[in-house]
Design a protein around this nucleic acid. Structure first.
Lengths: 336, 336
DNA sequence: CACGTTGCATGCAACGTTGCAAAGTGAGGG
DNA sequence: CCCTCACTTTGCAACGTTGCATGCAACGTG
């Protein structure tokens, strides 16, 4: 059915090895031999067998991406960029969904690794640094997000503390003093929410504002519905609020809908800021102020890390911590 | 590094073959032998080598999904469901992005097939039925969407004609008579837009309304920006309009934003309907009336098709055309 | 006791590829 | 005329797994 080196070799009247040389571009092959072999390759529509190459060479050309949820806009955009970036390196991207489930993440670290993929890009959600650390001697792993695995795994993320501080400062800068934060996740090891909270508090402190626990609202997940629920709780609980900083755009969009539904004017009565710069926020009404992480850079750097670990002989290079750029995008939801 | 059958066999003091039998559950193995082997397997943390199995057995356990764009909400949601569905069959999903590019789609059909994946789920955008038809004798393919490949490939989709008719009938039912359609794609072979247009026109005709070409607006892609641009063109061109049916939710959301920005009240001045039922539409203000395709069923049926073709010996079973269910979801954007 | 039967374990070969080392060819120099 | 050298081509082995067939006991039966 599919042609192998053997069939091509027979047809061209040369050895299997010579065909392999032509295909791989290794060694020098006489021009006329090369032409004859090439002809046979074209005739038979020969394609190298990925399984055999993988078995022989130990490289599958596959990289896995493990994220909580593809359907979520932020991860969807990131996945798209990673697919594109992988393609440029002739890798293919295997997408795994962890559903924010610790077991699932654990299984990925243990199982998939080393058997079919050359590397793993993992955006951990529920796994603690301790667990990430005990990575068996499998394939290289790059972490996305705030979980730094105690310096044992490569790691790409924006500086969430700085970013959260900047956006909070912006809210302060437009005259808001009763700024709430939505998106705490005290029950998760995941460090993201903790860092954003830290940046938020830093900005408040710098401006001489006191942090009010009643204005710090936890959520279960980062969906719109969670943002909406958090906003309702916040408004019902009663503390006066003139701005909210949500730890993700999705949360902000959900919160904004509830606020609008209750007759609040945005930004006049309530300024709203998010984090992630997903497309939805750009098209929301009003358009959402947010932190825009350089997602393309994150994708690029993540695969760079894998490429480095796959390329160099000493694979025990110390773990890198790469900080991707971000910038504040001011839109109507905080205008004035 | 990673243990192979050989190391396990040596440690357990049995032959490679016996270990293989234990691992695969084939043949009968004496209980105490099995226990000894199992112990060695656990000690060495043996994992079957995927490459060798693939080479030997011809199955990689990988299925590819090729879609125009992961980051688009509809495809993101679908990809998420497919990943989950694949996992249940112990398959893994490889995601490819075609960017709506014909060359890209062609390359996927030719290249990836037969070398590393067991099957392909393709959502064609730019490829014509003729091109899809000349599928080389590679792996099974399932098409998503309206392109039916002249009955040569399995095919899963909702009945777009019926769905478009239903939602247009709904607009007529709430008293609208000047109903525009946004989302024509006359330059594409892709049949989706054509079918939805057909359903729209059928509904108009049945109600005795005349189709006005000035109310049928083409778009380039299906992004929000395209919907926004189309809406601007429609409003600028001047035909009176009291409802729009957009061929995707993203188009509808973009259109709605423009309409709101121009001071139109939705649904009072303009009723808006979409297609796809993506999360954004549920949370839009006002919430978007739409056609909800049974995405979970689409994912399930698509993988069913692949499983059937991979399982049964005679792979020349005639192509199936599976129609997934859909239903009309009425929300605020067309209320009253 | 010879024989078929059953239960269990094993050897061989092959999937398609590539690293390594070596062999064949012809040309040029001593 | 032989030797060396560069150029080109080749054979062998191995990656880890499983289908097939066979080996080897111990068992029960005629």
């Amino acid at each position: 059915m599919t042609a192998s080196l053997r069939q091509v070799a027979e047809r061209a009247g040369v050895s299997i090895r010579t065909v392999s040389n032509v295909v791989s571009g290794f060694a020098q092959v006489a021009p006329e031999t090369r032409a004859r072999v090439q002809q046979a390759i074209d005739d038979l529509q020969y394609r190298p067998n990925a399984a055999a190459r993988h078995l022989r060479g130990g490289r599958s050309g596959l990289v896995a991406l493990a994220i909580p949820e593809i359907a979520s806009p932020y991860f969807g955009e990131l996945a798209g960029l990673l697919v594109r970036e992988a393609e440029q390196r002739s890798w293919m991207l295997l997408v795994q969904q962890t559903d924010g489930d610790a077991d699932h993440e654990r299984r990925l670290l243990d199982g998939v690794r080393g058997q079919v993929i050359d590397g793993l890009v993992l955006s951990p959600w529920a796994l603690s640094p301790q667990e990430l650390r005990r990575s068996p001697g499998g394939v290289p792993v790059v972490l996305l997000g705030e979980q730094d695995a105690a310096g044992l795994l490569d790691h790409v993320a924006v500086d969430s503390v700085a970013a959260a501080r900047e956006i909070t400062q912006h809210l302060i800068g437009i005259g808001r003093t009763r700024i709430a934060a939505i998106g705490l996740q005290p029950h998760l090891e995941n460090g993201t929410a903790a860092r954003r909270l830290e940046g938020y508090r830093q900005a408040l402190a710098e401006a001489g504002l006191t942090a009010d626990p009643a204005r710090e609202i936890p959520v279960d997940r980062l969906h719109r519905a969670d943002g909406a629920a958090a906003m309702s709780r916040l408004l019902d609980a009663g503390p006066r609020v003139d701005a909210i900083f949500c730890f993700s755009d999705q949360l902000a969009l959900g919160a904004m809908q509830v606020a609008l539904g209750r007759g609040l004017r945005i930004p006049r009565d309530l300024a709203v800021a998010g984090f992630d710069d997903v497309e939805d926020g750009r098209y929301a009404t009003p358009a959402l102020t947010t932190i825009s992480p350089d997602k393309a850079a994150i994708a690029r750097e993540a695969l760079n890390c894998l490429a480095d670990r796959l390329g160099t002989r000493p694979p025990d290079r110390p773990a890198r911590r790469i900080v991707a750029a971000h910038h504040l995008v001011i839109r109507d939801s905080t205008a004035g």
